[in-house]
Every structure is written in structure tokens, then in C-alpha cells.
Amino acid sequence: MPTAAASSCVSDAVNRRRGDLVELSHSIHAEPELAFAEHRSCAKTQTLVAERGFEITGGVAGLDTAFRAVYGSGPLTVGICAEYDALPGIGHACGHNIIAASAVGTALALAEVADDLGLTVVLLGTPAEESGGGKALMLDAGAFDDIAATVMLHPGPIDIAAARSLALSEVTIRYTGRESHAAVAPYLGINAADAVTVAQVAIGLLRQQLAPGQMVHGIVSDGGQASNVIPAHAELRYTMRALASESLRDLESRMAGCFAAGAVATGCEHVVDEMAPAYAELRPDAWLSAALRAEMVRLGRTPVPEEVEASVPLGSTDMGNVTQVMPGIHPVVGIDAGGASIHQPAFAAAAAGQSADTAVLEGATMLARTVVALAESAEQRDRVLEAQARRPS
């Protein structure tokens, strides 16, 4: 099938399913579910591809809300990641309903040309991106082993073709001291809340010496239960970010000293636990990003200039782990949120608005046409297949 015909075919396929895709986005948005508990959203994301004849495997990597849906048997296997977890308290303020619906649209469109282009299309349901690292867990469990390249998109306030992200790790720090009456015998207590205070003061002083791109943010998740009891237990949760994984490791080491300082100063014991797998920084594939950029422009979008893409402030994603292993992209598709950005209530409201619906449809079209371009370029097809063959088994 010629390039123009295949590209037109996938565009038409998305347009034919526009009602179903928008309905899917709105349905997921209306019932937000948190990390690893996205049971309704996971099931909804599978419905349309199941009807199309995709072979679905649930419980991937031992995760109840992860799945693989496969169509075709061509030698070039391309993955499309669907996210569907929401945020505590503010629902789909990161627009994962848009991600899931656009991923389904991409998969359905590529199914129309899979046989002609020698494709195997794999839709991956990836839970717990906000906290938990579903993709990292699935990657480690081998769910991506047969995939040569992976694509997905993310909504945001602007269009970014070759989006970057920060490396990230999250930890819980638990301090254990000894209770005592705060007035009768405070000298018999060991104050775990004081350990938290010392640690946070140390972190505040450390901020001046953080390297460019490094940042830390956290909360006190347990500071005691009664004001007249010296608290024996207190807890912090901290997120650390950096431009690259190597810089993140350095930051983690310095933060460990701050956490220890709280324990040393107060006499508490302390334990630091990782909350989830670390997220690596995104490494967008240059060719796929250029193809996606061309699709953005074709649809009348205005992606940020290439020379400033790396400087646009972004968060972190477990898709970074995937792009460290294989060619992949994670573009940002802009929606009108009235000036709001992700993780704000106004963005959650906008994620079910008209521009969000447009992002679902145009996003699916852009991703599908980018995969078509990859499949029809002998040079690029060989490149990703050869890279796959070189990956450690």
C-alpha cells in the first residue's frame, strides 16, 4: 500500500471511530481511579480493541490493571502505551483519559493497515504512572521485549514534538522514637516529629547547593496524633528529580544525609524505602520526533521550536525508562485549559472539553501516521529492528 494511501487509511479510521473514542475519554474521565486500582478504566480501554479482534492478555507483569492487546503478525512490532490512572483529590488533572483514548484510536487505526505494512500492533495498558511506575515494572517483567519501538502522547498546555522529562525517584522516610507525656515527662520521650523538622531544615539548606536541574519536594505524611504526646512515629515522603539519572543518583546520596541528620540529632531510628521504581529521563527518538512534528504542523498545530524543546519545564514519566531501552516518543499535545497546567483542577475540567476531544482524535491520527511512516521507510524500519536485535535478552 503506497504511503499516501496508508496514511489516509489510518486518518479515516480514526475519524470513523471519533464518537467511540471521545466517549471512551469522557467515560474514563468521569470515573477517576488511582494507581493500581484502575479496574474500570482498564476494562474500558480494552473494549474497542477487543471488538476489533485484538488478542488481549490481562494481569501483565503481575499487575491487575495492566494488559497487552495484540493485532497482526508482521515482523515490525510497535507498542502504543495507554495510561489511565488519576490523581488523588483532583481526578484526571493530568489528562490520562486523553492518553488512553488516543492510544486506543492509534491501535484501531494501525490495525487497518497492519497486514499491508508488516506490522504487529501492541496496545499496552500501563497503570500507575502518577505513582508506582507501571511501565518500569512491565519493562522489567519482559512485557516490552518483543517490541521494536513504542509511542504515546500526553496532553498539556502546549504542543511539544520531542518532549523531555526529568529522572525521578520517590522515597518514604519513617522515624521511630519513643512516646512520653509532653508535660509530665517529655525528657523520657524521643521525638520523631523533631527528626522530621531537622531533616526538612537540612533539605532547605541543601537547596542552595543543588546542581542545575535538580529539585526536591515532599510532604509530612505523619507528624503525630496528639499534641500532648511526644510522637514516637513520624513520616516524610519526598520526590527527587534531576535532568539525568546520574545526577539523580548524586542527589539521592545528598538527600540521604539530610534524612539521617534528623535521626542523629534526635536519637530516632530511621528507615528510607523506595516508593516505586525510579523513572529515567525521556530520550525521544530523533526520527520519530521529526515525523511527529511534521504531523503536528500538517494539522495546523504549532509545536515549540526544536531549539527550545529541551528547556521547556516538564515533570517525569515512566515512559522515560522505555525510551532508554528502545526508540520511542512521548509528545505533548496541547489543549485549551484557560491558562491552567497539568495537576491543577482547571486542567482536570478541561480534559473533558472540546479541545481535549480534538487532542484525542488528532493525537491518535498523528501517532498512527508516524508509525506508518516508520513502517514504510526501509531505512528506519531496519534501524529499529536492528536496534531491537542488539538489546540484551
Rank of each mutant, 00 (worst) to 15 (best):
G257D: 15
L108K: 09
E33R: 03
R298G: 01
V171T: 14
T47W: 01
A261Y: 06
L210I: 13
M215S: 15
A387W: 15
E129R: 14
T150C: 15
A337E: 01
G267I: 11
A337H: 00
P305W: 03
P32D: 07
G213I: 11
L374M: 14
V264Y: 05
A82H: 02
T57M: 05
P127S: 08
D115S: 12
A256Q: 14
Y175M: 07
Q46D: 01
A276D: 04
G133A: 08
D273A: 10
R381H: 13
V325I: 14
S8V: 05
H92I: 13
G320S: 06
A346P: 00
G177Q: 03
A278W: 00
A349C: 10
G91N: 09
D12Q: 11
S227V: 14
E83V: 07
V78M: 08
A61N: 13
N228T: 12
L48P: 12
G156R: 01
P155W: 01
H154Y: 02
T150I: 13
H39Y: 07
D85W: 08
I173A: 03
P331L: 04
D85L: 05
I99C: 06
S11Y: 02
N15V: 08
S180E: 02
E376F: 04
P186Y: 05
L34S: 05
R249I: 09
L63H: 10
M296Q: 13
R301N: 05
I335Q: 11
T150N: 11
V360E: 00
V220D: 10
A114S: 14
L119I: 03
E252I: 10
S27R: 15
P305Y: 05
G133P: 15
T57S: 11
V49E: 11
Q225Y: 04
D140S: 12
A310W: 03
E83N: 07
A294C: 10
P212L: 06
A346E: 00
A340Q: 00
V122G: 03
R369A: 06
L248E: 08
D194C: 02
S169C: 12
D250I: 12
S316V: 01
